[in-house]
Design a protein around this nucleic acid. Structure first.
Lengths: 188, 188
DNA sequence: TCATTCATGTAAGTGGTTACATGATTCA
DNA sequence: TGAATCATGTAACCACTTACATGAATGA
């Protein structure tokens, strides 16, 4: 899947579940796909315009003045499947946390501990969020045919978060064994 | 940390371990930081030129004709610590796998199974790679002060890979319970 | 001698973010 | 009435990738 088509797929995907405004597409991507996907305004509106031009979505008047509701067409559904079938070209990894830890000898062991603790807290918060999403899903019958798939992504998030928890505990343990060698410590 | 400075940090970091050519910086980033970081040629050479201009690295003649070896300066070490201390602004998540699974109802359950199996295989291969790196590290005494930190990143990779394994097994199980509803299946 | 690796750089293109500009509607 | 939210769009900018261009050294 060419990089640009990923946005197309995400937007078509949202519209395949429900017809909404461009603004709501962005909200859905942020709130529902948020733990594994993101799109900015600057991408969504031009993409919607392109999709309309290609006959993959249709635009109708929204309830508010000037607002548009987009609905996916039959051709749009075909296109969505076509896009989803294309191979994934994952972006090269770039973890700022790992970069800092890798050069932890320069950064100093205390700063490393802080980074790991922070990652742990974030993972804990994520687990709570995932539980909340599970609860919400359980009471949403309208989209029940999607739930088995949506749960897959939630479960992936949970597994990853728990892995971070385990890793953080192990890592904090292993760093306590280290003498407080702090090459990077200076008064600021 | 501003986005551009991350490249600066990665390059300075590599040079803080050993003085090498630009080509070798790229190799180190690809082979050693590869599981959590990446830089392309187009980034490394301009960054090295900038770092030299700022007095953070020094250039000397390499063994080969026309080749340059870069060495980090004292100011460069200070700058590295400064960069590593800056807060991390993680790139927004973009998992093509999760996007496809989330819209699995459109893609079809068989294609989803294929994606998950593929992710599982990749995770298995990664675990083997990590073991190989562990073995290599154990026999490299020259960089021993870095090892506690380098092991942190390897361990993180292993935890993540094992999480994928568990998630994949669970997910494949959960999908077998699903009737073979295949909206996305068409002859191509 | 010929392919591969080592080595350095530039230029064009892309995918994406951020900020800007505008205005209606809702609700406190 | 005024702040927050809903809503649509554009323009500038940025980091990064890919492809290109070049050539020396190594080793089969």
């Amino acid at each position: 899947m060419a990089r640009g088509s990923q946005t197309e797929a995400a937007v078509l995907g949202v519209l395949s579940v429900q017809s909404v405004t461009g603004y709501a597409v962005r909200e859905a991507i942020r709130d529902v796909l948020g733990h594994f996907w993101s799109e900015s305004f600057g991408q969504i509106y031009p993409t919607l315009a392109q999709l309309e031009h290609d006959g993959l979505v249709e635009r109708s008047h929204g309830e508010r003045a000037g607002s548009s509701v987009y609905a996916i067409t039959v051709a749009g559904r075909d296109r969505l499947v076509e896009l989803l079938r294309q191979p994934d070209h994952p972006a090269p990894p770039r973890s700022g946390l790992m970069l800092r830890l890798f050069f932890g000898n320069a950064l100093g062991v205390d700063a490393c501990r802080g980074l790991i603790r922070h990652a742990r807290v974030t993972a804990e918060e994520q687990l709570e969020t995932f539980q909340a999403i599970r609860d919400e899903l359980a009471s949403d019958a309208a989209t029940r045919e999607h739930h088995p798939y949506w749960l897959l992504t939630i479960s992936a998030g949970e597994h990853t978060a728990r892995a971070v928890l385990d890793w953080a505990d192990e890592s904090l343990e292993s760093l306590t064994a280290l003498e407080p060698n702090e090459p990077g410590t200076r008064a600021t």
